[in-house]
Amino acid sequence: MKFGIVVNEGPYTHQAADTAYKFTKAVLEKGHDVHRVFFYHDGVNVGTRMSVPPQDDRHIQRNWSELAEKYDLDMVICIAAAQRRGIMDENEAKRQGLDGDNIAPGFRISGLGQLIEAGVQSDRLVTFGD
């Protein structure tokens, strides 16, 4: 089965990013496909490489980045939500005249159309958040 995953809440504040990670990992380990993981609302904050949690805690961003690398996952951060919250890739930072970017490996910034397209293309679109 082909899944689409939506993450709507920020890391550490809310369990959504953890549960979504565990679900996505389980789905992939069972041999299913994940068409895309889409990060929206505060979920975009998962995609900053500037996150430095205490060493005895899980590293949510790194977990996702490693999963993306292992399974060639498409992880998309909504551009409108990202701009509000200061998540930038190199191009976007340059375009906005900012002095740096902070996007983590394996994530890319794109439009909300990618969320709709994930709904169209996936057999199941599973949302994590309130």
Partner: peptide, 11 residues
Amino acid sequence: MNDMPEDGGGV
């Protein structure tokens, strides 16, 4: 938006 909407292949 920086990307064109992709259609659902008529779906």
